[in-house]
């Protein structure tokens, strides 16, 4: 834990340096190729927008990490859980409930869903190879997509829980025109931070949290000291479901609740690679890097190749990263020579 903290600190200290180098590089590029546009104010604006976008990626990645840590299952269905949770939430709101009540009910639905998944899908598949469990979660992905849309319809829905969406201008006297920040993104970042803090406390200081960490560490040892593995799995999936609900609310109020929400899960995969599959801080930092990286690449490098860099930039970044640091920034180092 201490080593992780130190490494975290080092990376944090490097961040301003990296940003400065990136900015200088782009500035140089803009001098060489006059079709590119660059000012420091605009660069920071894009960077911040990217970072805040990255928070939302982190929220999705967080759900993956929770389940992977506790059960070694790569849960492909996380994205459809996000969609399903958001759809359920909107459905309850449309019934005329206040959003807090709808949130509690939707969280309840996600817990029930987690228990059902544990009972119906995971329990019969204990001891199967990981790839089979992974495939099963793809099955869950399809099922939930279809189920959610059968239940609640497939129109694009508006999810509004009263988060302010006004643009704000900060530091107007340092940069010309100031830096534009969307207050919604700030709220999302705040929610993400609170969620991580709550999870950290939950994992660190509660009885269930300790059991979860024990299971994550070693299944056999946890079983032998009397931790009920199946209950723990149900709890982990429930927690992941609630994280999915929060992510779904954030994404849903930003972009509308629609099918494409399920696909943002794919964007969470490079985040995981960057951060490491088993690290919660990794998911956060990875999300920030991916978010900022792809925004900056799209805005400042996109014109060179005709745009839509966003589609693949994150994956290529992750791919390049894998070659140098296969275990991710904070992942467990598994020594294997192949």
């Amino acid at each position: 834990m201490n080593a992780t903290a130190t490494r975290f600190g080092i990376w944090m200290a490097l961040v301003p340096l990296l940003i400065a180098i990136l900015g200088l590089g782009l500035q140089g590029l803009a001098i060489i190729d006059t079709s590119l546009f660059f000012t420091w104010g605009y660069f920071l604006e894009v960077l911040i927008a990217g970072l805040l976008q990255g928070v939302l990626y982190s929220l999705v990645a967080l759900g993956f990490v929770l389940i992977f840590k506790a059960s070694g299952i790569f849960n492909f269905a996380q994205g459809s859980m996000v969609l399903f949770a958001a759809l359920t939430m909107v459905g309850f709101i449309e019934m005329g409930l206040h959003w807090t009540l709808a949130f509690i009910l939707a969280a309840g639905v996600m817990v029930v869903l987690a228990i059902v998944i544990e009972k119906v899908v995971l329990r019969p598949m204990v001891n199967q190879p990981h790839i089979i469990l992974f495939m099963a979660t793809i099955g869950i992905f399809y099922f939930l997509d279809g189920f959610g849309q059968t239940l609640w319809g497939s129109d694009v829905k508006v999810l509004d829980i009263g988060i302010p969406k006004d643009p704000m201008f900060v530091l107007p006297n340092v940069f010309e025109g100031g830096i534009l920040i969307n207050s919604f993104d700030l709220v999302a970042a705040l929610v993400g931070a609170v969620l991580v803090a709550v999870l950290a406390v939950f994992f660190q200081y509660t009885r269930v949290g300790r059991a979860l960490r024990a299971v994550a560490d070693d299944h056999q040892a946890a079983l032998s000291v009397g931790i009920p593995l199946k209950t723990i799995w149900a709890i982990v999936w429930s927690v992941a479901g609630i994280v999915a609900l929060v992510a779904g609310i954030m994404w849903g109020s930003k972009a509308g609740v629609q099918f494409s929400l399920a696909l943002i899960a794919l964007k969470a995969l490079p985040v995981l690679i960057l951060g490491g599959f088993t690290s919660i801080p990794g998911a956060i930092v990875g999300g920030l890097i991916i978010g900022a990286g792809e925004q900056v690449a799209e805005v400042f490098l996109g014109p060179l190749v005709g745009g839509a860099l966003q589609d693949w930039f994150a994956y290529m970044l992750a791919l390049g990263f894998l070659l140098f640091r296969p275990q991710g920034l904070f992942g467990e180092k598994i020594i294997e020579r192949i």
Partner: peptide
């Protein structure tokens, strides 16, 4: 038609899970 496509997704997913449980 829309409902059929959603149901198709559901049945598809359920069948995959079923198959993996019965005969991995």
């Amino acid at each position: 038609v829309e409902l059929i496509s959603h149901l198709e997704f559901m049945i598809f997913g359920a069948l995959i899970i079923f198959f993996l449980i019965v005969e991995p």
